[in-house]
C-alpha cells in the first residue's frame, strides 16, 4: 500500500508551485484581513544579506517580486533583526520612513505592521501596508499578524523538511520512480477512487513478487 512508503504524499510538498501558492495565499489573506493597500512577504537571502520580496498582494505587486532591500533597514529590517512584531505610523516627515522600500516599490506607505517569520531564527518578514483605519488597534493588529506569520512559518517548515527529504532521496536513484508515480497520482482527480486503489494494489503485488516476497 502506498501509505507504507515513507515518501508517500510528498510529491506535492516538494512541488515548487505549492510553495509559491502558500506565500501568495498568505499575502492575499493578510491584505484582506487588514483591508490593507498591500501586503508582502520578504525572505532573507543570506548570500547577499538582503530581504527579498517573494510575494505581494495589492499596490505595487507586479513590480516588486525579486526586489532586494537591506536586511537592517525599515520596519521589515527591524523586525527581521530583532525577531519582534512591530507597527509604525509615519508622521508625514519630509524624508519618509523606509525610503529603501519606497524606492524599490514606488509605493510609500504611511502605516506598516510587520511580523517575523521564525523557524529557529527569523527567516523573513510578513508585512501589511496601510491597513484600513480603525479596523484593528495596533495591539490587536500585531497579534493577528503574528498569528498569520506563525501559521506561514509552520507551513514553510514542513516544506523545508520535505525538501530535505527530497535531497536525501536524490541520492537514492531507485526511489525516483516512486516519487514520479506519487506526483502523477496526486494530479489525478480520482483521489480515493477504486481505480487508483486497484492500480496501486496491483503495483504493490508486482513489486513484492519481483522481490520474491509475495504475501
Amino acid at each position: 500500500m502506498t501509505d507504507q512508503f515513507p515518501a508517500s504524499g510528498f510529491g506535492r510538498l516538494v512541488d515548487p508551485h505549492v510553495h509559491t501558492e502558500l506565500l501568495r495565499s498568505t499575502v492575499r489573506l493578510s491584505r484582506l484581513v487588514f483591508g490593507a493597500a498591500a501586503a508582502s512577504i520578504f525572505l532573507h537571502d543570506p548570500g547577499r544579506d538582503a530581504l527579498v520580496f517573494e510575494a505581494a498582494s495589492g499596490r505595487g505587486e507586479d513590480r516588486i517580486i525579486g526586489v532586494r532591500i537591506p536586511s537592517d533597514h525599515g520596519v521589515a529590517g527591524w523586525v527581521f533583526q530583532t525577531g519582534q512584531t512591530m507597527a509604525l505610523n509615519d508622521l508625514g516627515n519630509d524624508t519618509r520612513f523606509d525610503r529603501s522600500t519606497a524606492e524599490a516599490t514606488g509605493y510609500v506607505p504611511e502605516a506598516i505592521v510587520a511580523a517575523p517569520l521564525i523557524l529557529d531564527e527569523p527567516i523573513g518578514v510578513l508585512e501589511v501596508l496601510d491597513a484600513a483605519p480603525a479596523r484593528f488597534d495596533d495591539l490587536t493588529a500585531m497579534d493577528i499578524l503574528t498569528a498569520l506569520a506563525d501559521h506561514l512559518a509552520a507551513s514553510m517548515s514542513l516544506l523545508q523538511a520535505a525538501r530535505t527529504v527530497q535531497r536525501a532521496i536524490d541520492g537514492q536513484p531507485h526511489r525516483e520512480p516512486w516519487i514520479r508515480l506519487e506526483q502523477t497520482l496526486s494530479r489525478t482527480q480520482a483521489g480515493e477512487s477504486p481505480a487508483v486503489r486497484q492500480f496501486v494494489d496491483a503495483l504493490d503485488n508486482l513489486i513484492a513478487a519481483r522481490h520474491g516476497d509475495v504475501g
Partner: peptide, 19 residues
C-alpha cells in the same frame, strides 16, 4: 503602542511593539 519616538535625521514616528 503608538509611542512617539526619535529617528535618525531629526525625525519622529509613532511606533508599536514590545521593543
Amino acid at each position: 503602542i503608538n509611542v512617539l519616538a526619535a529617528q535618525p535625521g531629526n525625525r519622529r514616528v509613532r511606533l508599536s511593539g514590545n521593543s
